[in-house]
Amino acid sequence: MVAGPGDATAEWDPGARLDLSAYAPPLPSPPGPPPARPGLPPALGLGAMLLDQAGYTGRRVFQAVDRAEPSAACARLGARLAAGPRTALLAMGDGSARRTTAAPGYLDERAVPFDLNIEKAVRAGDLTTLAGVDPALARELMASGRPAWQLLAGALGPRAATEVLYAGAPYGVSYLVAVLTPAPAGE
């Protein structure tokens, strides 16, 4: 399953792919049939692209989560996923876009501590911190990934084994890449 923020909480067509036409008006089209419209929201579309790049050909579920979805509802979506058959989850979501004066949202002094707190929690395998992120604060800091993080926390529970592969903020937007593995029962 690929999960990420979107305009509404909804599943998308498993055959859908990334559609950047609203961001980058098409120049010469790539060969092959034109992509189906409407294409996926960017977070899900990038997830689809990663699956393609990894050569994944198995079943796909694309779950958009409303940017304003309350934390509890995000967690419930995640828990429902975890209760089903064994699934790999790609939770796609950015951190704050207000890290510097050159950032899309200009500088908010709270942005770096906010992102560092998320990073620290993920490194420590502490998912209760993700579950507890304040949606209002996340919105003010333009941390659009908040619903995806909370879906992830809902799926994995309070603890997970984690490995952080990347943490950085190019152009003033924070990105964190990590692999999270469910904690063994009883731990």
Binding site: A22, Y23, P25, A97, P104, G105, Y106, M142
Partner: peptide, 12 residues
């Protein structure tokens, strides 16, 4: 005095 962040247009 704000900047765009991933503004999207069906037809700009």
């Amino acid at each position: 005095r704000t900047r765009l962040f991933r503004a999207a247009y069906t037809d700009v």
